[in-house]
């Protein structure tokens, strides 16, 4: 057989082999992805404060401090002249 004709035949058949091998790989990937789907990892637990804690001493202290500073600035007084003892949410 002339070498050129042989080269053409080999090229044609080799392309078939490449498509065959990679086609099988496509099938394998599809099966893997089908049976082992991506499952989103559960989000890490968020540390939520309990209702008691939400109205608890730490948060209330922050609010009091913020209101304290704002009032002192607004009234033009020194912060130590103002005493906030308790806040109530409306």
């Amino acid at each position: 057989m002339p070498p050129l004709l042989e080269a053409i035949q080999i090229s044609f058949l080799a392309m078939i082999v490449i498509f065959l091998v990679l086609g099988i790989l496509i099938g394998v990937i599809k099966v893997l992805v089908h049976f082992l789907p991506y499952v989103e990892e559960p989000a890490p637990p968020v540390r939520t404060q309990s209702p008691v804690a939400a109205t608890g001493a730490f948060q209330e202290e922050d609010h009091i401090a913020a209101i304290h500073a704002a009032l002192a600035h607004h009234l033009g007084k020194a912060p130590q002249d103002i005493h906030i003892q308790h806040i109530t949410s409306l």
Partner: peptide, 20 residues
Amino acid sequence: NPSTLLLGAAAQIGVYTTLI
């Protein structure tokens, strides 16, 4: 997107035309 494997196969046409 496994179908893109076919693009990797198609590009090998350069190998075989060069062989010829």
